[in-house]
Design a protein around this nucleic acid. Sequence first.
DNA 1: AACATTATCTTGCCGGTGGCAAGATTGCAC
DNA 2: GTGCAATCTTGCCACCGGCAAGATAATGTT
Lengths: 188, 188
Amino acid sequence: MSPSRSYHHGDLRRALIRAAVETIGEVGAAAMSVREVARRAGVSHTAATYHFGDKAGLLTAVATEGYRLLGDALAAAHEEHRSFLEVGVAYVRFAADHRAHFEVMFQPALYHSDDRALQDARRATAALLYRTADADEDQVVAGVAAWSLVHGLATLWLNGNLPPLLGDDPQAIARRVAAHLRPRAPRR
Amino acid sequence: MSPSRSYHHGDLRRALIRAAVETIGEVGAAAMSVREVARRAGVSHTAATYHFGDKAGLLTAVATEGYRLLGDALAAAHEEHRSFLEVGVAYVRFAADHRAHFEVMFQPALYHSDDRALQDARRATAALLYRTADADEDQVVAGVAAWSLVHGLATLWLNGNLPPLLGDDPQAIARRVAAHLRPRAPRR
DNA sequence: AACATTATCTTGCCGGTGGCAAGATTGCAC
DNA sequence: GTGCAATCTTGCCACCGGCAAGATAATGTT
């Protein structure tokens, strides 16, 4: 169960990602240092470099995990409510519950955006947002509009650019705001 | 007119902001270093510290300038077209034309968000987005929806998260996407 | 005109950071 | 149990941000 204390540590890779997420949650992605992350995992900083190549590699792993988690959350919301709006709400909730992941995911300059695993995870999640299966361009535009709305709302909320008047519950705000999207041929 | 070559440099402050914007445009806000910016201005790095206090102070100046420029752009668009949609388009255009400013503005962790001049500029610009003069909460929500949409679109476009299918002209995309906002009591 | 004061910029220094090279330790294959 | 590969550490380097002290130049005072 817990191979924490041992010889070669067990699975440092996962522990480092955990520590990185934790650190980013406290000091922000820009201020995160590999050395600090390694310190939290009780390990030398070059151990991290060994597993991830470099700092950007570590952040690539964080972003990849983020896209997978987001995909899971969106799929679950869709499964449970069969509501496009609730998928949007789930998006905002994800941003609020996983600030660190979210922050990294949308700063591609911080990681290796050409990484294979990352691209796969990103593509899979994007497919959930604008159902790209049907090639109808108008539907893609509608999907982009929906994604833009919830993404913009999430980021503005995260960095405190929303008027305090609206309260501090991101999900409630999301429902009110998303209602301003013109409903358009929901399923095909 | 150009006091560029002289004794104490003339107006280093403006030159440093220029250099910072230029550097950020090339390497991103996170990778910008005060030393590099100072180098481009032909000056020691502590000269920058003298004018801005610290690195965050320099970025505060960049963000402040950004909010002012954005406010001007939005006001001009409103003045010219009297169209709410065109204000949104202007927002996206600003993000595309001033990537560096935009990138800094919406990463408050990078600068001193409690700075007076910054708050003033930010407040003034925000007032243009959801006309906060009328206290009607529903109108504020409508404004937040509009801002969220264009802000999300701008950021997604900036970091390459839009489907290539839509082309590469941010303004054209903005017009199509913004059309999905439910039109709501435009003027008071 | 001489001097003091202030604003502006430089040099020198410090701890911290990311990355590399070399080496130590440990698990595994056979 | 011996060789081999994986994993981690130590030692090093250049760069970074920030501080203290000092140099230089503009301005004000008389």
